[in-house]
Design a protein around this nucleic acid. Structure first.
Lengths: 309, 309
DNA sequence: ACCGGACACAACCCATGGTGGTGTACCTAG
DNA sequence: CTAGGTACACCACCATGGGTTGTGTCCGGT
């Protein structure tokens, strides 16, 4: 299926004749004829009805036409999406399964057609993400960065506080608790696999441990969410912490329980990093949206104090 | 922009390396390399990050990937749409501006993703449309056909009664009437241009004229809706008849008035022709939908009596 | 230091898609 | 009825491009 053939077909339908389409496309009439013939050979149906004074789409051609246009439009959008300069706003959401990704997605859903792309920069730390924002690889990035470490030229706005929740299997002693105090978890084993040293996550869990005297086992490789859920479901002592926003993770299949944390409520403070003075309208709209819709910050909120450092 | 290059890019991302993609696509690793290089040259950005043990998408590649998939999906749908055999249900709606087209569109909107295409067969008469249904060019066709003239192998179901309305300019004597009796129109000049002799429309207006003693001028060429609306807006005596369903036609720009007809209410009886015994699920669903949602038949309805002949 | 895996480069080759020239069908004008 | 014009298809020819094989470079692991 040749794209140029599709474009030619659409042009012929629009102009009504092969010669006019040829002029428009800057090729010869014979080339148009060949392209259409190839397209008809490929699809196996007659797309155009040739008459002594032009051509019009057949029934199959009528059906095919909107599909052809959709393909061409999709190709145009694909090219647009990576064109340096006037391209859609590109937001690094850190990880597709956590609150920022879903907040961005909700924002996108609430405004159909918004030129917005969500990407994950990978496993770099916050400083590298800030560098990527400065370089223009992405336009904004959800990260947690101490105020003192925000590089020059970057603005950081705290826009999304994701309350932490405990995730346990059905046999865990806290499985039926309505909520839990963070300090109460000092007696339990918390396992948060896959945290890499030097990342903002490591710093966050470090601060959380120190604040409430917890022992969080953040070492060891992460074998995937499935393995983690399997382990939780089978264990009567293992627990992990997840962001309260990531609803669609942890499906029901394992009968896992989410226990909210309160008194105080630890939140992971997602900050949006962007180039200072960036006036991209979608960025402005996203920030406005999150400022109003995103922040359900509880009264008894706790966040690491290194945020202000 | 080469489609095969897009397919190759998607395959490389999915498999994680060039060689695996090459195996999957049945080409050499070098060909994959060339295709990706051409795609990157064309887009002007690096799409894949090559590492000593595979490749992963760059940020641009992440953004590009869903667009590439969308293009491929659109191409698949385009091919599917005209593939003989398992193709979407194809309904001839006679004309895109009248009630059947909108009823089909509402049906389509109410079930996203339904495999359904609306086409216009052209200016053939009902008998030719029935022939097209028999031959399988389309699966169903909205036409008005006397019961006695339905060919063997075709079923006809009356599913949509479109009440007629009078359309007049602001200076017409009936411009402010809440409603009008058909018989009352005997004193007025009715102009319905573009009706071709031998079509079901001609037969309908013929029957309407005879039933109520009207003089309907259905001759003369149709210079387009704009010309008709201009003429109506300027005239104090000209009136035309339109289907009550075609809401989006006749925009406000001309200050035209739609006057319902009652006592009795003439309706244009749209019938759906389809191959007898056709069990296509979308066809069944469409018929069910129209049977319940489509028929707001008024009590004082009038329709041509040749329907039963 | 060596080996192996992953991708790029080079040379070559053929299929594809372009062009100009020409043929056929049909409508229209005289 | 014929002549001319228009619209598309067929043909021969040619250049480009995408494919293949062979080889090179880079890197990580042993």
């Amino acid at each position: 299926m040749d794209v140029e053939a599709l474009r030619t077909f659409v042009t012929v339908v629009e102009t009504g004749q092969f010669q006019a389409a040829a002029d428009e496309l800057g090729i010869s009439q014979q080339a148009v004829s060949k392209r259409i013939a190839a397209l008809e050979r490929h699809t196996g149906v007659t797309l155009l009805i040739r008459t002594p004074r032009g051509s019009r789409p057949s029934v199959d051609g009528q059906v095919f036409l909107p599909h052809a246009k959709r393909v061409l439009a999709a190709i145009g959008q694909a090219e647009q999406a990576v064109r340096p300069g006037s391209r859609p706003l590109r937001v690094d959401v850190l990880n597709r399964r956590i609150a920022p990704a879903q907040a961005v997605y909700r924002f996108y859903r609430s405004r159909p057609g918004t030129a917005l792309d969500a990407v994950t920069l990978g496993r770099e730390n916050a400083a590298q993400a800030a560098q990527a924002v400065l370089e223009g690889t992405v336009d904004a990035s959800f990260r947690a960065l101490p105020a003192g470490r925000v590089p020059a030229g970057i603005s950081a706005e705290r826009l999304l506080d994701a309350p932490l929740e405990l995730l346990v299997g059905p046999g865990h002693p806290l499985a039926d608790a309505p909520w839990v105090r963070p300090a109460h978890l000092a007696d339990h084993r918390i396992w948060v696999p896959g945290i890499r040293p030097g990342t903002e996550w490591a710093a966050f869990y470090q601060a959380l441990s120190e604040a409430f005297g917890l022992s969080i086992d953040a070492l060891g490789p992460h074998f995937g969410d499935e393995a983690l859920m399997d382990a939780l479901a089978d264990s009567t002592s293992l627990a992990t912490l997840v962001g309260g926003g990531d609803r669609y993770l942890w499906p029901r299949t394992h009968d896992l329980r989410r226990i909210p944390l309160h008194d105080p409520t630890p939140v992971y403070p997602h900050m949006l990093l962007f180039r200072s003075g960036d006036r991209h309208p979608v960025l402005t709209a996203l920030r406005d949206h999150l400022r109003t819709a995103g922040a359900r910050t509880p009264q008894d909120m706790w966040a690491p104090d290194w945020l202000d450092r």
